[in-house]
Simulated assay, not measured.
Amino acid sequence: MRVSPLTLGTITFGGDHGMEYFGHVDVDGAVDLLSRAKDAGINLVDTANFYSTGVAEEVLGKALASSRSFDDLLVTSKVGMVIGDGPNDGGQSRWHILDQVDRTLRRLGRDHLDLYYLHEWDGQTPLEETLQTMDQLVRSGKIRYYGVSNYTSWQLMKVLMTCERNGFIKPVSQQIYHTPQARDAEYEMIPAAIDQGLGSQVWSPLGMGLLTGKYRRGQDPQSPARMVDGPGTDVIVTDRENLYDTVDTLDEVASAHGASVAQVTLAWLLTRPGITNLVVGARTTAQWEDSLGAVDLTLTDEEISRIAGVSAPAVRYPFWHQVDLASDRLSAADRSIIGTTAGQLG
Rank of each mutant, 00 (worst) to 15 (best):
M1S: 13
M1D: 12
R2K: 15
S4N: 11
G9P: 02
F13I: 09
G14A: 05
D26E: 08
V27M: 03
V27P: 01
G29S: 09
K38D: 07
G41P: 10
I42N: 02
I42K: 02
L44G: 00
V45C: 08
V45E: 04
N49I: 09
A56I: 09
A56Y: 05
V59P: 00
K62G: 01
R68S: 15
L74S: 12
S77N: 11
K78I: 11
G84Y: 09
P87I: 06
G90H: 14
Q92E: 04
Q92R: 03
V101Y: 00
R103N: 09
T104R: 00
R106Q: 10
D111G: 13
H112N: 10
L115I: 08
Y117E: 01
E120V: 15
Q124E: 13
T125E: 05
E128P: 03
T130G: 05
S140T: 06
G141D: 04
K142L: 11
S149C: 10
S153A: 15
W154I: 15
W154N: 13
L160A: 10
T162P: 00
T162A: 06
E164Y: 13
R165S: 05
F168E: 02
I169Q: 12
S173I: 06
Q174M: 13
Y177G: 12
P180L: 12
A182K: 02
A182F: 03
R183M: 08
D184W: 06
E186L: 01
Y187W: 12
E188A: 14
P191F: 04
Q201E: 11
W203V: 07
S204E: 05
L206D: 00
G209E: 03
L211R: 02
K214I: 01
Y215E: 01
R217D: 14
G218P: 03
P221C: 11
R226A: 10
V228D: 11
G230P: 05
P231K: 10
T233H: 14
D234W: 12
V235I: 15
I236Y: 15
V237D: 08
R240P: 08
N242W: 01
D245G: 00
D245T: 09
L250Q: 00
E252A: 04
A259E: 01
A259L: 03
Q263F: 12
V264I: 13
L266Q: 04
A267H: 01
W268E: 00
L270S: 07
L270K: 07
R272P: 00
A286R: 13
Q287C: 03
D290M: 09
S291M: 04
S291T: 09
S291C: 14
A294W: 04
T298F: 04
T298V: 14
L299T: 06
E302F: 02
S311Y: 03
R316L: 13
P318R: 06
W320S: 14
W320A: 12
A326W: 13
S327F: 03
D328S: 15
A333N: 11
D334P: 11
D334E: 14
D334K: 08
I338F: 09
G339M: 03
T341W: 13
G343E: 07
